[in-house]
Design a protein around this nucleic acid. Structure first.
Length: 593
RNA sequence: GCACCCGUAGCUCAGCUGGAUAGAGCGACGGCCUCCGGAGCCGUAGGUCAGAGGUUCGAAUCCUCUCGGGUGCACCA
């Protein structure tokens, strides 16, 4: 059965279809001043029939038969036809939706029978987990949950960056300056130090870049020493990452990583040539830093590395100027090579309807190239880049190379200890306090990020990340906790009393019911657009409606018992949606706080 | 230089495929714990939606230009 609001909308649709000649109508939410729930503008059709909008709308409205619908009245203002829901029937429908769907309320089956692969988190290991990695991780995790909720079978694949020239740099740095004991004691921070040092030294001596590529070449060609060292570095850092994922509550179905595709890379390149797509070419020497204005002192002074040729896929015919590079002049692979192999593998393994890449917006061009190349190579999967804005520090952009990063763990610690401080006065055991602080603190951090439009850059702001009031996860969790508290206190007589939706007539009750009715639509929009923040902003408005209701209307302390029971049911369903919605954002609810 | 993204209240942000008097939170100011949990509720102040044109019955939303900020542009990922 369709949800209440969907039913209401389709009723309007068919009413108007009969009344007008047109068949598609926009449904709008009228402004608060208008006493109606759904509005349909008829300006266009009025114009087509040569009448003035108000008269046309009035004419249409007059002929509508509301009998048997969820609406009680129609009004007209200007060219709008406004529909007002009949409270009792609508409320009953909403309660029926809950009864029918139970915990699945809000979900759907639109994705049933289809697979979606989500490539998310995908950090470069051997670097610390910064707040920058947080975005891909929690946006991806949230999309995983949202898409699952609307029926897709979702495969979460953490495509970790454990291969490539960056590892060449690390291996080089370790070989020259590293100390095994030190690194094992504190893998990530030591590796970061090595990585940073590499870049500092390379500033002075560009030849190091060449050495790093040499190490990567050894790695890719199976050199035992390089591989042993790589394996060790990879395992050590992966262990730390797992600790963070555990704490964030983020899980993956696969963690294949770039290195997994090492054996498939030759095939990718060969294929590209066989299909006549790739060409050998020469390109400018390795980049240093200066663009070199236009005079281009083509002096032979330095880099003479490009004696051999690189493999390119030209995409000019498809509106993309820069070709995709799939093999370096020393024969080693690139990100693109491995990504092409990855697409092929995912397609064969899961036959996905879509592959989502939750990766920063700065890689937009790259993904256009990659997806086009994959398509030309015969891939059928619909690849979608789901970009997000980067996190900027007040001081400027974060840069691992410069060591200018904020560690996620530091943020989480601060958030947890702040919420622990608030819990200080509560009558709870220390262990409970610690557990609750963890859930609340981490929820706050996740919510601060997920509640913003995915695609926009965000300014990292400690106060915002750690906000526990107003638009925040703790605000939502708090509403949930209060409802749990009420449920605990409900007496037997209320619990056994019949629930009767027609008893609900207060303005705050109706507002809350309408808010609950909007959940399924919100979930659908979030799933379609890959925008988790739609759920976040929805939940805030729901919790706000609940808080007003809670303040204004007694739940348990009212007569008769059936009214108390009905309000309790309303509260219980609100808690359910809050928990479900927060769950879709990867945020848990404590029972007390 | 070329391409893409962004510019909404003092600050951080919503505003769905163009729709009615642009909304929250934080901060500021003023109220509310005899009543189910004050991480809360209620109210006040605060906006030429960067600017200028254009399309439209109607523009924060679409188009063009200007200004301001960000990102990307072949041997990193």
């Amino acid at each position: 059965m369709a949800y209440a609001l969907e039913t209401a909308q389709s009723q309007i649709q068919s009413l108007l279809e009969k009344a007008c000649s047109s068949s598609s109508f926009e449904m709008k939410n009228p402004p608060p001043k208008v006493d109606a729930d759904l509005a349909v503008p008829l300006f266009r059709m009025a114009k087509e029939s040569g009448k003035n909008p108000a008269a046309y709308a009035a004419e249409i409205a007059a002929g509508l038969e509301l009998e048997g619908t969820l609406f009680e009245s129609v009004s007209v203002t200007g060219g709008f036809v406004n529909f007002k829901l009949a409270e009792s029937p609508f409320t009953e429908r909403v309660f029926a939706d809950f009864a029918e769907n139970g915990e699945e309320y809000g979900g759907s089956q639109v994705g049933a029978g289809r697979n979606i692969v989500i490539d998310f988190s995908s950090p470069n290991i051997a670097k610390p987990f910064s707040v920058g990695h947080l975005r891909s991780t929690i946006i991806g995790d949230s999309l995983y949950k949202i898409l699952s909720f609307v029926g897709y079978r979702v495969i979460g694949d953490n495509h970790i960056g454990d291969w490539g020239t960056q590892f060449g740099k690390l291996l080089y740095a370790f070989d020259v300056w590293g100390d095994r004991q030190q690194v094992e004691a504190n893998p990530i921070r030591e590796m970061l130090a090595l990585y940073v040092r590499f870049h500092q030294e390379a500033e002075k001596d560009p030849a190091l870049e060449q050495s790093a590529r040499g190490w990567f070449k050894r790695l890719e060609e199976g050199d035992p020493e390089a591989n042993e060292l790589w394996q060790w570095a990879r395992d050590a850092s992966w262990e730390e990452f797992q600790r963070i994922y555990l704490r964030l509550g983020v899980k993956f179905d696969e963690v294949l990583g770039e290195s997994f595709y090492n054996d498939h890379l030759d095939v990718v390149v060969k294929n590209a040539f066989d299909q006549g797509l790739a060409q050998w070419g020469e390109i400018e020497a390795l980049p240093t830093e200066g663009q070199g204005e236009d005079e281009a002192g083509d002096g032979e002074d330095s880099k003479d590395v490009a004696q051999e040729k690189v493999a390119l896929i030209h995409l000019d015919d498809h509106g993309i100027e820069t070709p995709l590079l799939i093999q370096k002049s020393d024969g080693t692979s690139l990100y693109a090579t491995r990504d092409l192999a990855t697409i092929d593998h995912r397609e064969k393994t899961w036959k996905p309807a879509e592959i989502l890449y939750v990766v920063g917006g700065e890689q937009k061009l790259y993904f256009r190239q990659l997806f086009k190349a994959a398509e030309l190579l015969g891939s059928k999967a619909k690849c979608v880049h789901v970009p997000f804005g980067l996190i900027r520090l007040p001081a400027g952009k974060m840069s691992t190379r410069k060591g200018n990063v904020i560690f996620l763990e530091d943020v989480l610690e601060e958030a947890v200890s702040r919420s622990e401080a608030i819990l200080e006065e509560r009558d709870l055991s220390d262990q409970e306090k610690r557990q609750i602080a963890e859930v609340v603190g981490i929820g706050a951090v996740k919510f601060a990020d997920l509640s913003q439009t995915r695609t926009k850059d965000v300014l990292f702001d400690w106060e915002k990340m750690l906000n526990m009031q107003g638009d925040s996860a703790p605000y939502l969790q708090y509403a949930y906790v209060r409802i749990q508290s009420i449920l605990r206190k409900a007496s037997e007589s209320v619990l056994v009393a019949p629930v009767d939706p027609s008893l609900l007539t207060e303005a705050q009750e109706m507002a809350l019911i309408k808010a609950l009715a909007r959940f399924p639509e919100t979930v659908g929009n979030a799933a379609r657009s890959y925008y988790p923040h739609l759920i976040a902003t929805y939940l805030v408005s729901l919790a706000r409606e609940f808080s007003s209701f809670y303040k204004a209307v007694p739940i348990l302390k009212t007569e008769p018992a059936s009214l108390a029971a009905t309000r309790l049911e309303l509260a219980r369903r609100t808690a359910q949606v809050l928990q479900q919605g927060l769950g879709l954002l990867g945020i848990a609810c404590p029972q007390r706080m």
